[in-house]
């Protein structure tokens, strides 16, 4: 893995997502202790940090899968954390892909992908199928469209999960450690999909342990530690000369584990 694969700078648009003073606890100490984060259109932000630092919880809060205790989340000017918000309508604009794929095991690949467009967006069947076929072809899954998830490899399942999220044409895509449950030889095919999405201008927040990938793809890297963003900046700054001692420690351990080249 070479460090010189940094992409050309992306042209970022307006603010898409703003997280302000987000606090969240599951009854005990704060899992998120006041997070501020701004995401601009076409931007790719990578969340790094140890397990339990709050990366997944932050993504789940943004998708309103967890109720938040304090703070606000604003998407395209609309506060989505206020009372009386139609969460189903908000979630159409945010896609999320989970570590464990969470495909629907009783549905074929095509049914997994077309379920939400048909039931939520009320797309006619033929149109939903045509759009799904286009996405599946684009990501090399056309021959799997009629298979059930248990016939697919982990990498294929995760690519289907990404396509399922994309079928809703979300404004923002959240990727929650999507390669952590995969065998090492299957990681590349999933990361390639994310690279293609980034190149296509998809706005994304990516929680990941793949530091080389984060360095390569991110416009901005946020280091989470004990529920707060301790340090953030362009990847070349965070990975070359981190300011905070805890960031330095974390990266040092990653390098010692052979997961990142110094």
């Amino acid at each position: 893995m070479t460090a010189a694969t940094v992409h050309p700078p992306r042209v970022l648009g307006a603010d898409v997502l703003r997280v302000e003073g987000l606090r969240k606890s599951f009854g005990g100490p704060d899992v998120l202790g006041g997070v501020d984060l701004v995401l601009r259109e076409h931007e790719v932000v990578c969340l790094i940090g140890a397990s339990g630092s709050g990366k997944s919880t932050l993504l789940r809060c943004i998708d309103l899968l967890e109720p938040i205790d304090e703070g606000r989340i604003v998407i395209e000017g609309e506060e989505i954390t206020g009372p009386g918000v139609d969460v189903d309508r908000i979630r159409r604009r945010i896609g999320i892909v989970f570590q464990a794929f969470n495909l629907f095991p009783h549905m074929s690949v095509l049914e997994n992908v077309t379920l939400a467009p048909r039931q939520v967006l009320r797309r006619p069947r033929a149109a939903a199928v045509a759009e799904a076929d286009e996405l599946l072809t684009r990501f090399g899954l056309a021959d799997k469209r009629d298979d059930y998830p248990d016939r697919l490899s982990g990498g294929q399942q995760q690519r289907v999960a990404i396509v399922r999220a994309l079928a809703m044409a979300p404004d923002v895509l959240l990727l929650d450690e999507i390669t952590s449950a995969l065998d090492p030889e299957l990681i590349a095919e999933v990361l390639n999909v994310v690279r293609e999405l980034a190149a296509g201008g998809m706005t994304m927040i990516i929680a990941t342990h793949e530091m080389g990938f984060a360095r390569e793809i991110a416009d901005r890297v946020c280091f989470l530690d004990r529920g707060v963003i301790l340090e953030e900046g362009p990847p070349e700054v965070i990975f070359r000369s981190p300011r905070e001692p805890r960031t330095q420690q974390f990266l040092q351990r990653i390098i010692e584990a052979g997961r990142l080249q110094a």
């Binding site: 998708d63 999320i96 464990a100 629907f104 009783h106 939400a116 039931q119 939520v120 399922r164």
Partner: peptide, 25 residues
């Protein structure tokens, strides 16, 4: 519960999640 989370994350309502995802399984 991850099955319901996946369904809700796609924008399906609670009822739609039950009907299309939870009950058939």
């Amino acid at each position: 519960p991850s099955q319901e989370a996946a369904a809700r994350a796609l924008g399906l309502s609670r009822w739609q999640s039950l009907r299309f995802v939870i009950v058939p399984q």
